[in-house]
Design a protein around this nucleic acid. Structure first.
Lengths: 242, 242
DNA sequence: CCAATTTTCTATCGATTGATATAAATCTGT
DNA sequence: ACAGATTTATATCAATCGATAGAAAATTGG
């Protein structure tokens, strides 16, 4: 009935600085076991629901409920909804990066030789592209890939972080291999465009997932069908590089 | 202060049947000039804001404000937010269909011959693919393509309608041409997948636009650069079909 | 066991959302 | 100009949202 404050307040913005409020105020050295547990539960529930419903539809209440914790716990650990979302993105990014890193490093080493045949270069491309396709889009819980797709579609701040960590490295690596195959400088527009196209094709598997499934009349990507999909995509990529 | 109704109401669901409440209650034969005008304004504003912010973030108030009409006008003409969204999808769909239709018909006629060479088939593919690329992704306001992308990402009901009207036809047509080129049945998974990939590549130009620009170090797609982009994409598509 | 810290819970706030009731304003056909 | 239909505008509703206050409960080190 009565307003305590006549000035128009903005309670939607977090009280803490806009920097990174996701860490609670507890001491650095601290870290109770129970706290870390609910923190993890919130991350899992957040990834699931953000992926399932998108950022807006996933309410903090629903996330807290699925995590089995109370609503203020979300504020306490992540500073707010946006903080949780960013934390989810970082959580996923770190895992994918760890998964993609070794393969990328091996490929980068192999690229040191300058007498690689076309077949060898194609193998290298596959070596860097396949873990990406499997890791990001398939192996991990579907919610992870969906989270990524949502972040990209919604143009969240989370997308920038994810892209710079993963997409950027992948793109430069792919461009380098393609440049070799096409015998053009990796920095040339043609090579860069084709690198983007190829990487884009992979993400398409997730982004246009409902479209693909419906076009094929498939209920889902499972087992053999997934194998077929990967094989066809790869053949298309390989045959396009001449 | 006091509730008029003790029973828990659900005012979020539209009062009319869930069927298609977007048409106002005015007589069929009616149709005042002024009404049609604000109806169109709401459609334009809806497409813009749905594309800009996504379905959830685009509030009915913001849409009405941008359209320059009052809030209840939205309810009056489209029965509610969901109705407006569906109407926007149909509006876009109808335009694209009209734009795509003639070319598709011509290609379908040409496909009647069964002695087409590879080069001729590639020309046909380009004839059906280029209007799509130009019409949906370039010529029309960016918001249209964004609206489409959002609908797919959010798995809205609008996506179903759009897909069946446009995506379906385009895909089956492309699949038919590709099937001929690859000498495989158009209904085979391999051909269907490659059709999806090719069509998807085209939409990438819009959807991954910031990504492409950043990778190329270009400030924007203008004139010659756009031509280069199209040419590279097309060469990649053509050379992948062997 | 105790004091300090960390974690959780209940209750509630203010803002915004989609939708509606209701009446005034506008337009159409006669 | 008038009656009836159509269109617009004002004011408000109930629900839900993210966030917070403040106290209770739990955990830790001493």
């Amino acid at each position: 009935m009565r307003n305590r404050n006549t000035a128009p307040r903005k309670p939607r913005t977090p009280a803490q600085g806009a920097g990174s409020p996701q860490r609670p105020r507890h001491r650095e050295g601290g870290g109770y076991a129970r706290g870390e547990h609910t923190r993890r539960r919130l991350l899992d529930a957040g990834i699931e629901l953000f992926a399932e419903l998108g950022y807006e539809r996933a309410s903090t209440r629903a996330i807290a409920r699925r995590a089995g914790v109370s609503l203020p716990a979300l504020q306490y650990y992540f500073g707010g909804k946006e903080g949780l979302h960013r934390a989810c993105a970082e959580y996923i990014t770190e895992d994918v990066r760890a998964r993609l890193g070794p393969a990328a490093e091996r490929v980068r080493m192999a690229l040191g030789r300058d007498d690689l045949t076309r077949a060898e270069l194609l193998d290298l491309l596959r070596a860097v592209v396949e873990p990406f396709l499997e890791g990001l889009a398939m192996e991990r819980p579907e919610s992870w890939a969906l989270f990524f797709a949502r972040a990209q579609g919604e143009q969240n701040a989370a997308f920038d972080a994810i892209f710079q960590q993963i997409g950027g490295r992948l793109l430069t690596l792919v461009a380098e291999i393609i440049g070799r195959i096409l015998a053009r400088p990796a920095a040339s527009p043609e090579v860069a465009i084709r690198a983007v196209i190829i990487v884009g094709q992979l993400t398409l598997v997730r982004r246009a997932r409902p479209l693909i499934l419906r076009a094929l009349g498939w209920p889902d990507f499972d087992g053999e069908r997934l194998q077929t999909l990967k094989e066809v995509i790869w053949r298309a990529i390989a045959s396009s590089l001449r």
